[in-house]
C-alpha cells in the first residue's frame, strides 16, 4: 500500500513538474530523466545479473548517433528514434559474445576499453562528423507535430522512462528475471536448474543497452547536435555511481540514484563556477564527489538508498 502511494506521488510530481519549472530547470529535468533511463538498465545489469559495465555511455552514444545520423540523412525522425535502442542492443549483443566471457573487474575494464575505442573511432570518422560531431539534427516530430520546446521533451523523457520502468519491473518478476537473479548468485546452480546462463547474460546486457540507446536517441533530438565529447568516460562512471547510490537490485533505485546525483551535480556546478574558483574546479569537484559518494555508499548503504529507506519504514 505504502509503496503504491509513493509511486503515485512520484508519478504525479513527475507529471506536474515540467509545467512549473523554468527553462534551465527543465533542461535539468530532461537530463535527469535520460540518466534515469540508462541507470534503470544498468541497475538491472549490475543488481539482477551481477555484471558490471563501465561503458554504459557507449550505448547512449550509439543510440544518439543512430538517431542523429539517420535523420540528418533524411530518415523520418520517429524511425530514427526507434532505431536507436535496436542498434544499441544489437551492438551490445555482438560485442557481448566476446566480452561476457569475462567476469568482475575484467568485464568492467573491457567495457571501459570498448567505450574508449568507440569514442576514438567516432572522432576519426568523417561520416560521423569527426571530432566536431553532428550538427543540425532536426527536431523530433510525431504525426506532423514538431516537438520544439523543452517541455515537450520533458514529457517525451517521462514517457520513455515509464516504458523503461515497466519493462524492467515485468522482467524482474518473471521466469527470466528469476533466472537472472539466480545466475547472479550462483552460475553453477543456475545452469543445473536449466537456466541458459550465457544467453541470459547476453540478453540482459542487450536490454540495458537498449534502454541507454533509447535515452541517447531522445538526447540527440533534444540537443540537436552531438560530438564524441558529449559521451565522456566520466558519464559511464556517473551511471555506475547513480545505480549504486540508488540501490542495485531494485527497479526504482535507478531513478532515485539518477535524480539524486543530477541534483547534486547541479549544486556542485554552482559552487565550482562561483567567481574566484579556479577553472578546473567543476571537474575536480565532480570527480572527487563521485569517488566520495561511492565510498560512502559502499560503506554505509551497501544496498543503496532505496532498500535502506524501505527497510527503515518497515521496522
Amino acid at each position: 500500500m505504502r509503496t503504491t502511494a509513493l509511486v503515485l506521488a512520484a508519478a504525479a510530481a513527475a507529471l506536474a513538474l515540467p509545467v512549473v519549472l523554468d527553462g534551465r530547470q527543465l533542461g535539468i529535468y530532461v537530463l535527469a530523466g535520460l540518466a534515469a533511463m540508462v541507470t534503470v538498465g544498468l541497475a538491472l545489469l549490475m543488481g539482477f545479473a551481477g555484471q558490471i559495465s563501465l561503458g554504459q555511455a557507449s550505448f547512449y552514444a550509439i543510440g544518439a548517433y543512430t538517431a542523429g545520423l539517420l535523420t540528418v540523412n533524411g530518415v523520418p525522425p520517429l524511425l530514427g528514434l526507434a532505431a536507436a535502442p535496436v542498434l544499441a542492443a544489437g551492438f551490445a549483443a555482438v560485442v557481448g559474445i566476446g566480452l561476457l566471457r569475462l567476469r568482475g573487474h575484467y568485464l568492467a575494464f573491457a567495457t571501459l576499453a570498448m567505450q574508449l575505442i568507440l569514442l576514438s573511432v567516432l572522432a576519426q570518422s568523417e561520416w560521423a562528423g569527426g571530432a566536431i560531431g553532428l550538427q543540425g539534427i532536426p527536431r523530433l516530430s510525431v504525426g506532423g507535430i514538431e516537438l520544439d520546446e523543452d517541455v515537450h521533451y520533458a514529457y517525451l523523457v517521462l514517457a520513455g522512462l515509464t516504458g523503461t520502468l515497466l519493462v524492467a519491473r515485468n522482467l524482474v518478476a518473471s521466469r527470466v528475471g528469476r533466472g537472472l537473479r539466480a545466475l547472479a548468485t550462483s552460475e553453477v546452480a543456475a545452469g543445473a536448474s536449466g537456466v541458459p546462463v550465457g544467453r541470459y547474460r547476453l540478453g540482459v546486457f542487450a536490454l540495458s543497452a537498449a534502454f541507454a540507446g533509447l535515452a541517447g536517441g531522445i538526447y540527440a533530438f533534444y540537443l540537436g547536435y552531438l560530438g564524441p565529447g558529449s559521451f565522456p568516460v566520466l558519464l559511464s562512471v556517473e551511471y555506475v555511481v547513480m545505480a549504486v547510490v540508488g540501490g542495485l537490485g531494485t527497479v526504482s533505485g535507478g531513478v532515485v540514484g539518477a535524480v539524486a546525483i543530477v541534483l547534486l551535480v547541479q549544486v556542485l556546478n554552482d559552487i565550482g563556477t562561483r567567481p574566484g574558483m579556479p577553472s578546473y574546479a567543476p571537474s575536480v569537484l565532480s570527480y572527487a564527489v563521485y569517488g566520495l559518494l561511492l565510498v560512502i555508499a559502499v560503506l554505509y548503504l551497501p544496498r543503496g538508498l532505496v532498500p535502506a529507506l524501505s527497510r527503515r519504514d518497515r521496522s
Binding site: 518473471s174 521466469r175 527470466v176 528469476r178 533466472g179 539466480a182 543456475a190 536448474s193 536449466g194 537456466v195
Partner: peptide, 10 residues
C-alpha cells in the same frame, strides 16, 4: 521456481 526453467519456455 527457478528449478522449473527446464520445463518452461517463455
Amino acid at each position: 521456481m527457478v528449478g522449473a526453467h527446464g520445463v518452461t519456455r517463455s
